[in-house]
Design a protein around this nucleic acid. Structure first.
Length: 892
RNA sequence: GGGCGACUAGCUCAGCUGGUUCAGAGCAUUUGGUUUACACCCAAAGGGUCAGGGGUUCGAAUCCCUUGUCGCCCA
């Protein structure tokens, strides 16, 4: 088939993606081949493709396509997660626009809206992955809220509860008052904000409630002590004042009581060395309901807990006349009131770090609440050993993340797995009474009823007496099972899929979810399969813009993925993303990289157009230059193939790609095709053509994982192929022996060619004028490439001589001297200068080498190989000096 | 405040257990090219005290100490 002069990417991409789908190449079923499995890190079901996804999934596709070419049974399982917080927030916002308040809806009604939303927007991102060329097994697409997936999650919850690993605790949690849910520590972003330190006066009472005669505050005699706080609105929750027992300034306050301004609550003054004597006034107000450290103090000293906030962080009835007002409004207003009433001593500006919600950006409120926790202490042990142990079963790429992993795992805290949300798996705990322990945990309400009857000995209970916990499980509590549950390995641990595909091979994800997800999957893997979930973890860098900002939707600095593909082709974007993204290094995204990728595609396309345009004549013999060219490229290809394998084995995909890029661009297009190119409008011999096609096919194979569309397209122009012969399922090139000497000889020859080209250029000699050429072959260089040299720079021939040629321009490669006769146009002085410069340089070089060699300690201490190399350098330099001196003598 | 990591050409990065892969690659820049595959191209050139300082060594980008700057994670 005639190849078009321009590559029409969008048409080609659609055509071949459809073809691949139609012939089911992406689908995998267990068989007797070696499996190669990747599970996708499930993106948010309602998300859209951003640069991070593109990078991530390009890498996975490269790995999976390569495995497929290597004859493995490649299976890439795609899917999405339900992203409870993000999705619920979106649904709530949408309902709000329609004038519906989430709180007016029943759970079922809300979930219906959420499912509608999921069905409408869900899966968009998967369609976008197809545009990138991702060869996922779409028949296996999973969603964390699918029936079977949810069942697995619930089953695991019940199991862990029965093992005593899940418990209910009253804990200080990060409360997002906007989403009205709990966040894990990892979902809280700490930011420095400018705030104030308010100095408040608390009046003092004797233990019996009578006012003291006198006492000191930090400024001398007075009637009150002063406390610095950043949050004056929380005074309504104060239940103690704390001083450091070692603080001489406050000794007299021991055992006394204080009166909280405005609400006039009388609270004890306690002592604890937790208090920092340097900070503020050295007195701390204790608000156990609203600060983690205060909670600890409260527990230690058995203090009252007064929660002053509603779930939206407005004040409740403890806030008295501020009831119903937002915390920040109250902060302003109460400052005014405190000032008016003389309680506010002074205000200082103060920078403090505050937690904000990763999702809603709202300022986090520490809050006490009933939560479900998973005990991590024992679960984490096999997961630490697997990554950091002697014979680690799981490898992280790059290795530097092992330290990060260790640090987190060794300081792990119990995992708060409950979320005050509707969108997610509802916690399978059923309450039958008001007591703290009046609940049972079971997979179904019927099982729960049985358990409840047993526990209460009350046979009269019915399902109507059971109320299920209203919280949902953390989304990560679904995705930590992902490598198991996508193969239904929780519900049916012996099914053939899980037995064949598990453990999976590679996991590709961002380092930002090393803990949320990767570590937890490892934990779940050992707990539920007794085995690692994957062998290698490739941690990609974050994609940043040119100003080093993380690309995010909120900043609006992420380019539209599909537009990029449209502009630079899918292959171009893939290549652009991979070219400069070593594992674990952040990638500074620049569109020009995609341009380079597209340019590479164009180069390959045109290379094929060249080959395709040749007429073949099977009557003419193969020229020697072509034979050498084929031998050389085949060896070069094999050598690079080894390099590529090595890069892949270390997950250095950008290096593998760069090796391919240079092989194709420089060696194949720049050298090989020029060597075998027939004269203008002349045919090519059949033997060379056949070799060229075979070489081209091998090139396409190694390029295919990176540039699947273009390569498949050209593959089918080369020949009519059946579906069984498609490139996507062809065979990765077999390793063959390498002729190292021909590669070295080529390198020498290319320097000769370069020397001749320089002379042509200097003297403006048109290419079509053949030139005479002589050499004094001091190096005894092989003549293998002579015919190639003659062809590439259009020589009349190569004369081997033993004496310098008069009236010629010269250049040297090592100690070989080359002559291009140029009657009349040789400037002797210039030649002398050139030679003298070269001589001076070489003599300097020789001296440095000889200095080294005459250093006894060097000769005694350095390994033999190093000394031999130095001696070789010395010999080469001496030979070159000899050549230069001879030349100078003949000129001069 | 604690931990981890980085700093090499204008940019992005490679450089493994010190020594011919030791100062490299790609891009960018400059210069020159209408060679009928490709200007999304070809040929060539310039450009770095390897963050600063100190040490170990015959020899340090590489190992050690120290200072600085930046990033990430955790309080």
């Amino acid at each position: 088939m005639q190849i078009p002069s321009k590559y029409d990417a969008s048409q080609v991409e659609t055509k071949w993606y459809n073809y691949w789908m139609k012939h089911n190449y992406f689908h995998s079923e267990p068989d007797d081949r070696e499996p190669y499995t990747i599970v996708i890190p499930p993106p948010n079901v309602t998300g859209v493709l951003h640069m991070g996804h593109m990078l991530n999934n390009t890498i996975q596709d490269v790995l999976i396509r390569r495995a497929r070419l290597q004859g493995k049974n490649a299976c890439w399982v795609p899917g999405t997660d339900h992203a409870s917080i993000a999705t619920e927030a979106k649904v709530v916002a949408k309902l709000k626009e329609e004038g519906i308040d989430k709180n007016d809806l029943s759970r079922e009604e809300f979930l219906k809206h959420a499912w509608d939303w999921t069905h409408e927007y869900g899966g968009v991102i998967l369609e976008q992955l197809k545009k990138l060329g991702c060869s996922c097994d779409w028949d296996r697409t999973k969603f964390t809220m699918d029936g079977d997936m949810s069942e697995a999650v619930i089953k695991v919850f019940v199991d862990l509860f029965n093992k005593g690993l899940i418990y209910r605790g009253y804990r200080m949690v990060n409360w997002d008052p906007e989403a009205k849910t709990t966040l894990s520590d990892e979902e809280v972003i700490y930011e420095e904000r400018q705030g104030n330190l308010y100095y408040l006066k608390y009046k003092i009472l004797n233990e019996d409630g009578s006012p003291p005669d006198s006492y000191r505050d930090s400024e001398g005699l007075g009637e009150a002590l002063t406390i610095a706080t950043t949050r004056p609105e929380t005074i309504f929750g104060d239940t103690a004042i704390c001083i450091n027992p070692n603080d001489a300034r406050f000794k007299h306050l021991k055992g006394k009581k204080a009166i909280v301004p405005i609400c006039n609550r009388v609270i004890p003054i306690i002592e604890d060395d937790y208090v920092d004597m340097e900070f503020g006034t050295g007195c701390l107000k204790v608000t156990p309901a609203h600060d983690e450290n205060d909670k600890n103090l409260g527990d230690k000293h058995s203090l009252m807990v007064v929660d002053i906030f509603n779930d939206d962080a407005s004040l409740n009835s403890f806030g008295l006349h501020y009831q119903g007002k937002d915390r920040f409004v109250v902060r302003k207003e109460i400052t005014k009131e405190l000032e008016d009433k003389g309680f506010l001593v002074k205000t200082e500006s103060h920078i403090n770090k505050i937690g904000t919600s990763e999702r809603t950006k709202a300022i986090i409120e520490p809050r006490l609440s009933d939560q479900w926790f998973l005990k991590m202490e024992d679960l984490v042990k096999p997961a630490i050993k697997a990554v950091l142990g002697e014979n680690s079963e799981i490898k992280l790429f790059p290795k530097k993340f092992e330290n990060t992993y260790r640090h987190w795992m060794e300081n792990i805290r119990d995992w708060n797995i409950s979320r005050q949300l509707l969108w997610g798996q509802q916690i399978p705990a059923y309450y039958y009474g008001d007591g703290k322990e009046d609940f049972v945990v079971a997979e179904t309400i019927d099982d729960a009823l049985k358990l409840a009857k047993q526990k209460t000995n009350n046979q009269q209970l019915t399902t109507n007496n059971l109320i299920q916990d209203t919280d949902a499980l953390d989304t990560w509590f679904s995705s930590w099972l992902w490598p198991i549950s996508v193969f239904d390995g929780i519900r049916h641990p012996e099914n053939k899929d899980i037995k064949y595909y598990y453990p999976t091979n590679d996991l590709v994800t961002g380092p930002d979810i090393l803990f949320f997800w990767v570590a937890r999957m490892i934990i779940a893997g050992y707990e539920y399969k007794g085995e690692k979930p994957f062998e290698n973890v490739y941690l990609t860098g974050l994609v940043r813009d040119k100003q080093r900002r993380k690309m995010s939707k909120s900043l609006g600095n992420s380019p539209d993925a599909l537009k990029l593909i449209e502009e630079y082709t899918a292959d171009g974007v893939r290549v652009g993303l991979l070219l400069s993204s070593a594992a674990g290094n952040d990638l500074l995204f620049d569109e020009s990289l995609c341009q380079q990728g597209k340019g590479f595609g164009n180069k390959v396309w045109n290379a094929y157009r060249l080959v395709d345009g040749w007429d073949i004549d099977d009557t003419i013999p193969q020229p020697n230059s072509s034979k050498i060219a084929v031998d050389w490229y085949e060896s070069k290809f094999q050598k690079m193939l080894l390099d590529i394998e090595d890069h892949f084995s270390k997950y250095r995909l950008s290096d593998a790609l760069m090796t391919i890029y240079k092989l194709i661009f420089d060696d194949f297009c720049g050298w090989f095709l020029e060597m075998i190119k027939p004269e203008y409008q002349k045919p090519i011999d059949a033997k060379t053509f056949k070799s060229a096609i075979a070489i081209f096919e091998n090139n396409l194979k190694i390029m295919h994982p990176f540039m699947p569309f273009l390569t498949e397209d050209i593959w089918h122009y080369i020949a009519e192929r059946t579906p069984e012969e498609a490139l996507i399922i062809s065979k990765w090139p077999e390793p063959k022996s390498i002729n190292e000497s021909i590669i070295t000889e080529f390198e020498f020859a290319s320097e000769v060619i370069s020397g001749i080209r320089n002379i042509r250029k200097q003297k403006n000699i048109a290419f079509k004028d053949a030139i005479a050429f002589s050499v004094i072959n001091n190096e005894k260089a092989h003549a293998t490439f002579d015919d190639v040299i003659i062809k590439l720079v259009n020589l009349e021939g190569i004369n081997y001589v033993s004496e310098a040629v008069d009236g010629a321009l010269t250049f040297r490669v090592k100690s070989n001297e080359y002559f291009v006769p140029m009657a009349g146009s040789v400037n002797v002085e210039e030649e002398i200068k050139k030679l003298t410069d070269e001589l001076n340089y070489t003599e300097g070089f020789l001296k440095s080498v000889q200095n080294k060699l005459s250093n006894e300690r060097f000769v005694a201490g350095a390994p033999e190989q190093v000394i031999a190399n130095e001696r070789k350098k010395e010999a080469d330099a001496l030979a070159k000096i000899e050549t230069l001196k001879t030349s100078l003598a003949s000129l001069g």
